[in-house]
Design a protein around this nucleic acid. Structure first.
Lengths: 161, 161
DNA sequence: TCGCCCTCGTTTTATATGAAACGATCGAGA
DNA sequence: TCTCGATCGTTTCATATAAAACGAGGGCGA
């Protein structure tokens, strides 16, 4: 009576530290924060800019729309990233000759150089992050994340209706 | 020559879709987006507000500082969430009699009622999200996320120096 | 007691975000 | 050819975010 009961005592109580959506949000935030210092301090790039660069590094040329799809970003975010990367001289823009709505984006020479310097750093950092996990654990993580992503998208569709 | 080579051809190339920091960010974003519709549409709460409520539901009373620690939020975010929850009548504030800097936060009757209605919904949604995973997969995911969280925090400390 | 540094929570400031409005362009069909 | 609806990318607008400045207290040592 003299102390508030900590929840109802059931063991299915909601404990934030064990709640998956919360854990994913915190982990993603921590990881993004740590990794983004590399992009920012050493290359003066934001994460959306890095995503654009990474996609152009693999598939070139590309359009803003396609970059948005491939990088899970909305078109406004891509538009800003592309504008800044263009200004920084890392990518080039030209309108598509067949469809004037489309913009043909390519890495510039400098842009490709920057990409080729960041990519190994990013992969090395990822390897560091995964250091404590064995092959099986990594495979299990990989599979679980894929399932969760698919399921989350399905649930999102339901709720949105 | 007539086509840009897709990366260097090495199989350790950086593919965003397989890059763990990217996958975590996308998954967390999808999950938060889907789940937040529950908080927003049905209870008019933001995620930081929900985190405050969830923590108070388990540990009461609490201070803003403690809520920030327990909910992985900065103090500004907590301050705003607390202000709005107070205005909405879901929590009560009083200054600590022994230390006038501290604020003693408690769920109001309505606040507790809201918490007790949201918690089962949140847990049910989480169960839906995990639907496709068996017990072993869940345990593996749980372990992997814990390791990654610890490792990410360690790496963050290094880089920040 | 005074002076100093620390902590707590709020507010300010600059920036990031995404939904929506927008202008320009395209393609299909009358 | 001339609409009309759809698509592409930009910009606007309202909101969210976090770092830093801030004011109010507290606690310890001189």
């Amino acid at each position: 009576m003299d102390q508030a009961a900590p929840s109802s005592g059931k063991d299915d109580a909601l404990v934030l530290e064990r709640f998956l959506p919360y854990r994913l949000a915190v982990l993603a935030h921590t990881v993004s924060g740590a990794l983004s210092t590399i992009y920012r301090d050493r290359f003066d790039l934001t994460i959306p800019e890095w995503r654009v660069l990474a996609n152009l590094g693999r598939e070139e040329p590309s359009s803003s729309n396609r970059l948005a799809e491939r990088g899970s970003m909305d078109k406004a975010k891509v538009s800003r990233a592309v504008a800044r990367l263009t200004e920084a001289g890392l990518i080039t823009r030209e309108t598509d000759s067949r469809d004037n709505r489309l913009i043909v984006l390519r890495l510039s020479k400098r842009g490709r150089s920057v990409y080729q310097r960041i990519a190994p750093l990013a992969l090395a950092w990822e390897a560091d992050l995964l250091e404590g996990l064995g092959d099986e654990e990594r495979a299990a993580l990989d599979a679980a994340l894929a399932k969760l992503q698919a399921r989350a998208e399905a649930l999102k569709g339901e709720a949105g209706g």
